[in-house]
Nucleic acid binder design. Structure first.
Lengths: 209, 209
DNA sequence: AAGTAGTTTAAACAAGCGTTTAAACTAACG
DNA sequence: CGTTAGTTTAAACGCTTGTTTAAACTACTT
């Protein structure tokens, strides 16, 4: 395997588990078994390496997501469960693309939102706006009564639920094993969260005060 | 004001805004206008300082929360909106206790959950178990059909929603101003999130597969 | 007034960080 | 074979980190 890919793989799992700030280039190059200077040679800087790790996933994911969400919009009367279920297959397809792909990607998403002062939010909204646009369209078709303002809040809450859940999914799976004797996978976590966020976004419009 | 409190105040706002890993002792002592060595003299280490910042809030908050949740349990037929609304007054009371108290505390909670590999989860569950126990009791009384396993998941999702929302509440308030011309406060964010999490936790039990 | 416990201070410590340098190595082409 | 472009390497750079040291200062007690 190429040095570049060895770095990307090592950086990905370390970033997912310990955050961007919490992972040093020496840890990455140590786990990748390459020279320290290779990161700056191939990627220029640590920040560019972070972008490269995220891009590798987003380039795989965003066309699948956009197409799945467009399909939902073509349903005659879609509901919110349909909308959120559209995420399942594209997300799980990351596991074929790479071992632990789904889990790593979702954890990275969580890290990027809390580490590094909103840099990742800028990255996603500017580099991959198509996903967000199609998602909003699908939600609007499923719940037309939802005002733009209310939608803004609820989509943000949903982002929080998903990102936070996934960034601690390893711990959750461990607890499910010890407390309920269940052997769960990341796909089970995804399936569990869908009814929750669908109900949250679909909550009745609150009365004006 | 005492050196100790100057350090605690500076550390609190810096930790909330930049995370625990992202804040150096030199930034803290610089903003507090005290000597660098004062942190280690008064608190022993950075880790102990983090605990002290969290404890200052939890010691104020946990008795109020426990009592509010116990009151909910005494309602004849409480619903989930009652349960989550019980958090409002205790959380907002932190604003009397300190400027920006509510916002800072909730942001710190979010930081602690994602920074520092679950150290804060250990801290909260071992040091303040009474809050969690009373919360679970109140949810059970409001939604008895919810299985223990389903409850575990949904409470975790809720934690994620709240913690993530609050850790980025400053950004949210800014967006609400620019996009919808609304001047919101942290209390408005709290009131917005309650219908969402109440609906999420109250979602119908999924069919067995 | 001398002594003492508590606090503050400037300075230094060792360790880790991201990045840069320049030399060594590799492989392909003319 | 010699040259050249691409890659890897060890070493060092300058800087920041949390922590420690020992001297200076403060305020209260004997």
């Amino acid at each position: 395997m190429s040095t570049k890919n060895k770095i990307l793989d090592a950086a990905e799992s370390l970033f997912a588990n310990k955050g961007f700030n919490g992972t040093s280039l020496r840890e990455i190059t140590g786990q990748a078994d390459v020279n320290l200077a290779a990161v700056n040679y191939h990627f220029g800087s640590k920040k560019e390496l972070i972008k490269a790790v995220m891009s590798r996933y987003m380039n795989e994911l965003s066309p699948r997501l956009e197409s799945a969400l467009r399909q939902v919009c073509e349903i005659e009367a879609p509901n919110l469960i349909d909308v959120f279920s559209a995420f399942i297959d594209p997300l799980l397809s990351l596991n074929k693309f790479k071992d632990n792909g789904t889990s790593n990607f979702l954890q990275l998403l969580g890290r990027g939102y809390t580490d590094s002062q909103g840099f990742l939010r800028w990255f996603l909204t500017t580099q991959y706006p198509g996903v967000i646009d199609n998602f909003v369209l699908a939600v609007q078709k499923s719940y037309p009564e939802l005002s733009a303002e209310e939608m803004f809040w609820r989509l943000h809450f949903t982002m929080g639920t998903v990102v936070f859940t996934m960034s601690s999914s390893d711990a959750l799976i461990d607890i499910a094993k010890s407390d309920f004797d269940r052997d769960l996978q990341i796909s089970d976590v995804i399936r569990n969260v869908i009814p929750y966020v669908a109900a949250g976004v679909g909550a009745p419009m609150p009365l004006k005060r």
